[in-house]
Amino acid sequence: MKKFLIQLAAISRFVGDTIRYVFKGPFEFRELTRQCYLIGYRSFFLIGFTSFIAGIVFTRQSRPSLASFGAESWLPSLVSQAVVRSLGPLITALICAGKLGSNIGAELGSMRVSEQIDAMEVSGTRPFSYLVVTRVIAATMMLPILVMYADTIALLGSYMMVNMINKSSFQLFVNEVAVSVTYLDIFSSLVKSAIFGFAIGIVGCYAGYNTSGGTTGVGRAANTAVVVSMVFIFVIDLVSLQFINLFRTT
């Protein structure tokens, strides 16, 4: 219990330091841009590919159930709400937790065990701003963009499936989607994605920055980053669902 509380205090301090350095600086714009490129642009293919498949599979599996009630025309509406509200953010966040979480954890972990972070400290620079703050901000900024992209690609996959079966027009599909998805759906999805991004960034950086124990420690840091951020993603998803539902019912 004591160990858990100490760990909790250390994580809270780490989060506090990250937020403090966001406002205090020094501001590492060049590194931030590089991280946005690595986290965002370099994830486009993987996110696009998986979202496209998810859109096809979800549409294909939902169609028989709706067809049995004669409600096949509701398919675009069902898919778009599921994708924008939950499927898009969740799939994107889980893929990013695996890809970015392990990347950040292993990179910072190996920098820690090879004394590169110590070298930054003893040269009078602030490695926290350069290494942690940039990655956390980049992950927080890029996740909503990736989610919007994932939603679009998943809906394209869904349309392809609908079109193959029903020969439905693209315009009709888009109209159905536009009617079904509300501004609250989009806004809440983007806010939730930013929180996912923050969680992935913080967990990856915390695990990597505090690595000890040589190469075994680096492996452990990467593993911790992935597992813990995935757990956080589901918890955040659950909490945000409850919170957003307050606005939906009123």
């Binding site: 590169q116 070298a119 400290e121 003893v122 040269s123 009078g124």
Partner: peptide, 16 residues
């Protein structure tokens, strides 16, 4: 102080 003290690490610690 650290600006006045140079530290050469055992493993060089170059930023790879």
């Amino acid at each position: 102080l650290r600006l006045q003290v140079g530290f050469s690490f055992q493993g060089s610690a170059l930023y790879d």
